[in-house]
């Protein structure tokens, strides 16, 4: 049995390697049930982080957690990313923050547990962080029920208007901002 390979920061130069066209479009094109999850990634000074990259993993609307290949489908002739074919729900998204530290994801609400798992990578972050964006409060959810109200609030995406949810991620808290709850898995 081997011991784990240590994590290292994603650094500043992943930009031409990891992001791919359509990375933030998990929802099949034109699906009327699609919702937008968006927000900012911020540091301990409350400044947006322009060099973070977020990954999302979630159950399909029917609750399936099997996922599907084809998130970064490539053209075998040119090697370029041609994107998802818009039929399968792969459950996986990858979105770099823009120069404002902002990200946006278009997806379908997960079935079963009402949360989207978020994995945060950034320059300056030596080991990635997991959190969850809950699109709805979930009475009886073991994680939410274990948290104090102000901590729990950091995991609840805020409906802004129909089909649009705001979810900011504070890598570090300060006097004004509550630090986002980050997770470990036993």
């Amino acid at each position: 049995m081997g011991l784990p390979t240590p994590s290292q920061t994603v650094g500043p130069f992943y930009g031409y390697a990891l992001p791919f066209t359509g990375g933030g479009q998990i929802a099949p094109t034109g699906d009327p049930a699609a919702v937008t999850l968006h927000g900012y990634v911020l540091d301990g000074a409350g400044e947006p982080i322009p060099d973070a990259i977020l990954e999302f993993w979630q159950a399909a609307p029917d609750g399936s957690r099997a996922g599907a290949p084809g998130s970064l489908r490539r053209d075998p002739v040119t090697g370029t990313v041609i994107g998802r074919h818009g039929l399968d729900f792969t459950g996986f998204g990858r979105v770099p923050t823009d120069a404002d530290g902002h990200y946006a994801l278009r997806t379908l609400p997960p079935g079963g547990a009402p949360y989207i798992s978020v994995c945060v990578f950034a320059r300056g972050l030596l080991h990635h962080l997991y959190t969850r964006a809950y699109l709805a409060d979930a009475p009886g959810d073991p994680l939410l029920t274990s948290l104090e109200p102000e901590r729990r609030a950091t995991l609840l995406a805020t409906p802004e208007r129909d089909g649009v949810y705001r979810f900011d991620i504070y890598l570090q808290g300060n006097e004004t901002n509550e630090e986002t709850v980050f997770l470990a898995f036993a």
């Binding site: 301990g44 570090q172 630090e179 036993a186």
Partner: peptide
Amino acid sequence: VLRHPKRPLVTVRDPEAVELSGPVFGVTD
């Protein structure tokens, strides 16, 4: 310095956690 949480991580022990499954990729990727 400004990009790490100060609070401890919260440990999830839920055997139904979605994070215990993961994305898949294939020959099209």
